[in-house]
Design a protein around this nucleic acid. Structure first.
Length: 739
DNA sequence: ATAGGGTTAG
């Protein structure tokens, strides 16, 4: 416990000449005589010393209360403030609680809490104002422990706590959080009779909620005789923060029924609740309310609305709000950027980031985190390197999260070596679980399952405890590499050794792993044994396996459940129609196509991207938009002829339409990934690898063709598809045709 | 002379 007696060492080593007479910031009218201050040269500047020395009185006649009040209310830097402090002390005016409190606040505003504390101790009175101010300062600066300690000193010293004291202390308990302290403060509140003060009650409700005891807070809230907007908002926020958006909105409506009108703060909280709910209609109606009350002029409200729309999937509206803002801060930009990223609009995010660099605020680590993950999604290695060097040159403080995101970005943009390099260096030599997770999943998506397993072992040897994400990455790595036995062991260890209950996503990986390996019955049985009910992704994994192995019956079994669980997900219809097409059930293919049409669903268009230098070239199937398309098509034809000589045969089974065989071969040649790779062969410097990113799964025929091409052209071809990377080299693929 | 509720991120 820190002593509350006056500090033995004064704040200033020599209170006389140096400080008082270099007082450039003091108004010229302030008369201070040299003799006055030299009187006190050898005496520490404490309240006691100046009450015994008569000299202070003469100064006090000149330096009166209103002057200091004004002086303290103007913004100072530390030096002038110290001079004001010295003058106050010499004048004995520090004993005036109001001025003491102002001085404490002034120091705190400059971030010099220890100076605030010195003032407080110099004062050393029993006036609650000073104690309250000190507690307020601690709380505001996140020093909850000190605030609570001060409060307990207050109690022991018999200083009466009042209706102002409790909110400060309770806020400190809420911040840290300290329930047991909070509860004892609650007892004091009752003992001292402040339990029906609206301010104190709101603080109590907030404290309990932030300590995770929402029912307790709710009980208090329900028992309140008088509630105001703040207490309602505290309770609404409690539900919002604990991810119970429905309860939050219910309370919001009840509040409105009782005649309260939400203000800006309430709107922000409610917007966040709506964002969690993800319902566009509710979002629009709240937006209307906010507009009617002209709250959008407030940047924070605008920011909350942007992220609300973004989380409801309505990026266009989010952008509209963003564009309409008079004033934007860093959060506005970050919210919009992450809105794009969350909704898969990676290139929009990157374009907006460009604009931010040009005309917006300085990007911070959160900005980069969002942009880096957008780049990872996009798969542009060129951009990845630009972003990385931006981070390095900007001197921003790189945290572990951003560091991990950068490694992930490199892995997803095809440069696993750089990711490994970063990982082995670590961020100031440090790594966390997620660093390991990123690398395990990185190796996994590049088909290097053994190395993923090795990392998993290393991680345990270093004493890093794996989490559920680790196992998702590891199981998916096993699945991609066909390491069935190892995958099954990992899945078993997860529950028994690491006490992590398998979640749906883990089952998805294992079903995928078994299914890919052709063990369809085993996969089906695993689903049947799931303690948690199977979700759509689990059935989707099974259906995907049925597509690979042409199992129509089991496919229908899975599809039936999928169409029921996720009737609006086009991918599942496409998968099932692939199964039908493979067994030439063209009438069934047609029926599924009609179902999709009637539900307004469309198969996402295939799209492949290749970067050449700073240029990005995108291709759709049979694309005629590219300026060089004629040349590209001629190139493909000549390449196909060369490949045929080497033994390539078009895999017409990949064409999922019922057309003539000759046409099928034509269609195959126009696949987006072939266009992109052919263009790469034309334009990328000889010997350099060709890297293509496709939004869907690579097709079988293209996969086969690229193996031949890598041989014929003597260069590496890297394709990132929707699932993983394929590295083609010398006639073989890194996936060893297991994908 | 002093107070309670707030937005972005894996």
């Amino acid at each position: 416990m820190r002593s509350l007696r006056p500090a033995h060492r004064p704040l200033f080593s020599s209170p006389s000449s140096t400080l008082l007479f270099s007082a450039a910031a003091l108004p010229p009218s302030v008369p201070v005589s040299r003799e006055e201050s030299e009187d006190s040269q050898d005496t520490p500047l404490t309240t006691t010393s100046f009450t015994t020395h008569g000299g202070g009185g003469r100064v006090a006649r000149c330096l009166d209360f209103p002057l200091f009040d004004r002086l303290l209310k103007t913004h100072h830097s530390l030096r002038p403030l110290q001079q004001v402090h010295a003058l106050l002390a010499t004048g004995g005016l520090l004993r005036h609680p109001h001025l003491g409190s102002q001085l404490i606040l002034a120091y705190a505003n400059l971030g010099f809490l220890h100076c605030s504390r010195v003032v407080f101790e110099e004062f050393n009175g029993s006036n609650s104002l000073l104690w309250n101010t000190m507690a307020r300062v601690y709380t505001k600066n996140g020093c909850s422990g000190e605030a609570v300690e001060l409060y307990s000193c207050m109690r022991r010293g018999g200083i009466p706590a009042n209706n102002y004291t409790y909110p400060f202390v309770l806020k400190a308990c809420a911040f840290s959080p300290m329930v047991s302290v909070g509860k004892s403060v609650h007892c004091d509140v009752i003992k001292t009779g402040f339990e029906s003060d609206v301010f104190v009650e709101a603080a109590l409700v907030d404290m309990y909620s932030k300590c995770g005891e929402i029912p307790h807070g709710r009980k208090l809230f329900d028992g309140m005789l008088e509630r105001d907007l703040v207490s309602w908002t505290a309770m609404i926020t409690a539900y919002e923060q604990s991810e119970k958006p429905k309860e939050s909105l219910l309370l919001f409506h009840q509040m409105q029924e009782e005649g309260f009108v939400a203000d800006r703060v309430t709107s922000i909280t409610v917007a966040s609740a709506v964002a969690q709910l993800g319902d566009t209609r509710t979002a629009r109606s709240l937006h209307g309310f906010i507009i009617r009350n002209s709250f959008l002029a407030d940047v924070a409200v605008g920011n909350a609305v942007i992220s609300m729309f973004a989380k409801c999937g309505d990026v266009k509206l989010a952008r509209l709000v963003f564009d309409a803002m008079d004033e934007r801060d860093g959060i506005s930009w970050n919210s919009m950027l992450s809105g794009y990223a969350q909704n898969g609009h990676a290139s929009e995010a990157l374009a907006l980031f460009d604009q931010m660099l040009f005309s917006g605020p300085e990007p911070n680590p959160v900005t980069l985190l969002v942009v880096v993950s957008a780049c990872a999604h996009l798969g542009s290695l060129h951009l990845a390197r630009q972003l990385h060097s931006f981070v390095i040159s900007s001197n921003m403080e790189v945290n572990m999260m951003l560091w991990n995101a950068i490694m992930d970005m490199y892995a997803k943009c095809g440069d696993l070596d750089t990711a490994v390099g970063l990982f082995s260096v670590g961020l100031d030599g440090r790594r966390d679980v997620n660093s390991w997770n990123v690398m395990i999943s990185g190796f996994g998506m590049h088909g290097r399952g053994r190395e993923a397993l090795k990392l998993f072992q290393d991680m345990q040897e270093e004493g890093v405890l794996p989490n559920h994400i680790t196992f998702t990455s590891l199981l998916s790595a096993c699945s991609h590499a066909g390491l069935i036995q190892e995958g099954k062991e990992a899945f078993n260890d997860m529950g028994s050794k690491f006490m992590i209950a398998p979640m749906a996503k883990h089952y998805v990986c294992v079903v995928d792993m078994l299914g890919r390996a052709g063990r369809l019955e085993e996969a089906r049985d695993l689903i049947a044994q799931m303690p948690i009910g199977p979700n759509d992704a689990v059935w989707g994994a099974l259906l995907g396996a049925c597509r690979i192995h042409g199992n129509r019956e089991l496919g229908e079994f899975a599809a039936k459940r999928l169409f029921h669980l996720e009737p609006g997900h086009s991918g599942y219809y496409v998968l099932m129609s692939n199964v039908y097409a493979a067994s030439t059930k063209w009438d069934e293919v047609g029926k599924l196509r009609d179902t999709m049409k009637s539900r307004g669903l469309r198969k996402p268009a295939a799209f492949s991207v290749i970067e050449i230098g700073r240029e990005v070239h995108g291709f759709h199937t049979a694309d005629l938009c590219h300026p060089d398309h004629a040349e590209i098509y001629r190139k493909i034809e000549s390449l196909v002829e060369e490949m045929k000589v080497a033994g390539y045969e078009p895999d017409v089974a990949c064409v999922l339409h019922d057309v003539e065989e000759e046409d099928k071969a034509q269609i195959l040649n126009l696949h987006s990934e072939k266009l992109a790779v052919a263009y790469g062969i034309m334009k990328v410097e000889a010997g350099r690898p060709i890297q293509v990113t496709k939004n869907l799964r690579i097709c079988n025929d293209c996969h086969c063709a690229f193996k031949f091409l890598s041989q014929i052209c003597g260069r590496r071809i890297v394709v990132r598809d929707a699932n993983r990377f394929h590295h083609f080299s010398e006639g073989a693929c890194s996936c060893r045709d297991y994908w």
